[in-house]
Simulated scan of single mutants.
Amino acid sequence: MRVAVVTESFLPTVNGVTNSVCKVLDHLASAGHEAIVICPDAGAPDEYKGFTVYTVPALAYRQFPVGLPNPLVQRILARFAPDVLHAASPFLLGAQGIAAANRLGVPSVAVFQTDVAGYTRRHGVGLASTLAWRFVRWVHDGADLTLVPSSASHADLEGAGIDRLARWGRGVDLVRYHPNNRFAPATRALRERLSPDGEVVIGYVGRIAAEKQVERLGSLRGLPGIHLAIVGDGSHVPVVERQLRGMPATFLGRLGGPELAAAYASFDIFAHTGTEETFGQTVQEAHASGLPVVAPGAGGPIDLVDDGVDGYLFSPADDRALRASVRALVMDAPLRRRMGEAGRRAVLGRTWESVCDELIGHYERVILDRALALSGTSSREVYG
């Protein structure tokens, strides 16, 4: 299979979109498929896993490179002649990629991963949120299939009038993120720093931005015997630092690879704070690490946290409920262990290999549907 991946974000920018695109490319390479990548020009490598990476001009918006439409996109696609186009979190560049694929008769799969409407609402531009949904609908209406990561995202897009939807989650590295990391030297050293007197470590991992609402951890002020560990960076760091001032808290900055795995393993509880998460990959990584998770009952975490089994889902707008959920776990070490073990079991079937195999199935489906449409045969005649 020949796959053209058009992504709004790629290396060296590190975020959820880049990570999932790299995992997909890893899988395509290992399975012997051919691929190319088209992404914003922000220092991207010339190739990845042997696949050529093409870049288009970009501008920076809130530290994010935004790829600009460019006539080069259609020429690249025409020359490569893909069987399918994969549009990762499509915005301006992805919209052009989908449109170009349609002109070339190439089926496309759009992966919904960034809540643009929620992002604009969070940054205080309500009218822009309405316009953003119109833009999202226009982009995704051009795709043969839109893959959504959660039931909440499915409901949002369906409510916005977008059809041809299917669920596709994200995988998690069960080897890198493992409960046994707790006994590694790097983890022990970090535990000594975060919990010198046996404090219960409550951790957060992710971007520190307005929509992540990390400052809500300030509601834990006064809980005895705790220490907060914040992993990540972003424009909202000063706000969070002010909100947590005087609390036992350590800001560890952005971490990756083994250092990130050691950070998860040094936590006792994982706290997720944002209410507009389309999926919640860090929740899966925490569960893989054997941690109980406390998260709002909104967005992606609804599908990832089994309330009362492997963590708690609290009322999204209620900081007192967040505090009560964390407090219950702080006070009960056996409960933390039981929920952490349940969380690990919950993600055992969510390897990147399995979810990428599922993605290949979606590719095959849209390719077949296009072929059937051209031949005048309905998919119902084939699938029943």
Rank of each mutant, 00 (worst) to 15 (best):
H272G: 00
A184Q: 12
F10H: 00
G50Y: 11
L127I: 13
L147C: 11
M1G: 15
S219V: 12
A78D: 15
V24S: 04
A29M: 05
P196N: 10
E285I: 11
E285L: 07
K23Y: 05
I230C: 05
V172L: 07
D41L: 02
I230V: 15
A95F: 11
L322C: 07
A42Y: 14
A373R: 14
R62A: 15
G161M: 10
T114S: 12
S129C: 05
M1Y: 08
E259S: 13
A288R: 05
A262H: 03
A262Y: 01
L157P: 01
S30T: 12
N19V: 14
S129Q: 14
M331V: 11
T52S: 09
G105S: 09
E285H: 09
I38R: 02
A186L: 11
R2E: 12
T146D: 10
E215F: 04
E8I: 00
L11Q: 10
D357K: 08
R221M: 06
Y312C: 02
G234Y: 04
S289L: 09
S354Q: 15
L165Q: 12
V66S: 02
G232V: 07
R62Y: 09
P292E: 04
F51V: 05
V6T: 08
P296H: 03
A143M: 09
R182I: 11
G234A: 11
E341N: 08
V205G: 03
L28M: 05
G124N: 10
L147N: 04
F267P: 01
T7P: 06
P149R: 04
Q213C: 08
F183M: 07
V14I: 14
V84I: 08
A321S: 12
L223Q: 05
L165A: 14
G97L: 09
L145I: 07
G16C: 06
L304S: 03
V24I: 13
T250G: 03
L25W: 01
M247W: 05
V125Q: 12
A152H: 10
T120K: 00
R167Q: 08
V3N: 02
G198M: 12
V21G: 00
L11E: 04
V111N: 04
G253S: 13
A110F: 04
G384N: 06
Y119H: 09
A31K: 13
P258D: 15
R79T: 10
L223R: 07
D26A: 05
G97F: 10
A333T: 14
V139E: 00
V382K: 06
P71S: 13
N180H: 13
R103L: 14
L165I: 08
L190M: 14
V237L: 15
R121F: 07
L85W: 03
A371C: 10
V294L: 10
L68R: 05
L157G: 02
I162G: 00
P248K: 05
V240T: 09
R380G: 12
S315K: 13
L104M: 12
F279D: 00
A229W: 01
V231L: 14
V330H: 04
P45F: 06
